[in-house]
Amino acid sequence: MNKMCSNEIKSVLLKTLIRFNDFCEKNDIKYSLAYGTALGAIRHKGFIPWDDDIDVLMMRSEYNKFEAAWGNYIKSHNDHYKLWPELDEENYFIVYVAKFFDTDTTLYEYFSKGKVIEYGIFIDIFVLDHIPVEKSEQKKLFLDVRFYWKWIQHFQRHFKKWNKFVRKYNLSLPSLDMMVNKLMERKDRYNRELTPLVSMIQDYQKKKDINLSIFKYEWFHDYILTDFEGYKFPIIKAYDEMLKNSYGDYMQLPPKDQQVGHNIDAYWR
Rank of each mutant, 00 (worst) to 15 (best):
G230Q: 02
I235Y: 04
E8R: 02
F23L: 01
D52S: 05
L253Y: 12
D257I: 15
D22Q: 14
Y169V: 15
Y31Q: 00
H130E: 05
I224S: 01
D79P: 06
I236F: 01
N170Y: 06
M251L: 10
K65C: 08
I117L: 08
G46Q: 03
I29M: 07
G120P: 13
M179C: 12
N64C: 14
Y267T: 02
I123Y: 01
D249Q: 10
K244M: 08
L87C: 05
Y92P: 00
T16W: 01
D240P: 01
H130T: 02
K208H: 09
E193W: 02
R186S: 09
D104R: 14
V166R: 03
R167C: 07
T226I: 14
S246K: 07
I54C: 04
G248T: 13
E86Y: 04
M200C: 11
S246W: 06
M184Q: 11
M251E: 09
K168I: 14
V260I: 08
E109Q: 05
L17M: 06
Q205L: 05
W151D: 12
I18K: 00
M1W: 10
D88R: 01
S112W: 13
L197A: 03
F20I: 06
L14F: 02
K15C: 07
Q156W: 07
Q202L: 04
M4Y: 08
I214D: 00
G36T: 01
N64H: 15
Y148K: 05
A68N: 13
I29K: 01
R146E: 14
Y31K: 01
S213I: 15
L107T: 01
A266G: 05
K15F: 04
L197Q: 06
V116R: 04
E134G: 07
D79A: 06
S136T: 14
C5M: 01
I54R: 01
Y63C: 13
D209H: 07
E109R: 00
Y250Q: 11
N91S: 03
M178P: 12
F122L: 15
P85R: 00
D240E: 08
F228S: 10
I117C: 12
V97I: 14
I210V: 11
K160Y: 03
G248K: 07
A41L: 02
D52H: 04
D227S: 09
F159E: 08
S172L: 15
R60T: 09
A98W: 00
F147Q: 14
S199K: 00
Y92G: 02
R189Y: 13
I235K: 03
N245G: 02
D227E: 09
Q156E: 14
Y119I: 12
K82C: 04
L83E: 04
Y169P: 10
V97F: 03
V198M: 01
V127Q: 08
P196F: 03
P85E: 04
A41G: 06
F111A: 13
I236S: 10
L107Y: 03
N211M: 04
R189E: 02
Y73T: 06
F155S: 08
T195N: 03
